[in-house]
Computed example of a mutant assay.
Amino acid sequence: MQILITAGPSSPTRVYQFTSLSLVLSAVALIVPLMGLSVALYHAVVLKAAQEQWPIISDAVRFVERHEQAQRDHFVRENLDAMAMKVGDLQARLMRLEAVGERVAGMAGMKPEELKKVEPTPPGAAGSGRGGALPALREPTRIGSFDDMNQLMERVQNLSDRNADVFTLIESRLFEKRLEALMIPSSAPVANVPVGSGFGFRSDPFTGRPTLHTGLDFPSDTGTAILAAAGGVVASAGLHPQYGQLVELDHGNGLITRYAHTSKMLVKQGDLIRRGQKIAEVGTTGRSTGPHLHFEVLVEGVQQDPAKFLAGKGQAPQNVAQAPTPAR
Rank of each mutant, 00 (worst) to 15 (best):
T6F: 00
A7E: 15
G8Y: 07
S11Y: 11
P12D: 13
L25Q: 12
P33W: 10
L34N: 12
L34A: 15
L37Y: 12
S38M: 12
E52K: 14
W54M: 04
V61T: 05
R62F: 03
E68S: 11
A70M: 10
V87S: 03
G88D: 08
D89M: 10
L90G: 09
L90C: 05
Q91R: 14
Q91T: 14
R96S: 11
A99K: 10
A99F: 03
A105M: 03
M107F: 03
M110I: 09
E114M: 11
K116T: 13
K116C: 00
P120G: 15
T121K: 07
P123L: 09
A125N: 04
A126W: 11
G127E: 09
S128K: 08
G129C: 06
R130Y: 06
A136F: 02
L137F: 04
D147Y: 05
M153T: 11
Q157V: 06
E171I: 04
L174F: 02
F175T: 15
L179D: 13
I184T: 15
N192R: 14
G196A: 06
G198H: 06
R202Q: 12
P205G: 07
F206W: 06
R209I: 12
L212A: 13
D217Y: 01
A230V: 09
V234R: 02
A235V: 01
L239I: 13
H240E: 07
Y243I: 07
E248Y: 01
L249N: 03
D250Q: 06
R258G: 11
K278L: 07
E281K: 09
T285N: 08
P291M: 06
F295Y: 12
E296S: 09
L298G: 01
E300T: 05
Q303F: 11
Q303M: 05
Q303C: 11
L310V: 11
G312R: 13
V320E: 06
V320S: 08
A321I: 00
Q322E: 06
Q322W: 00
P324D: 09
P324C: 02
R328N: 07
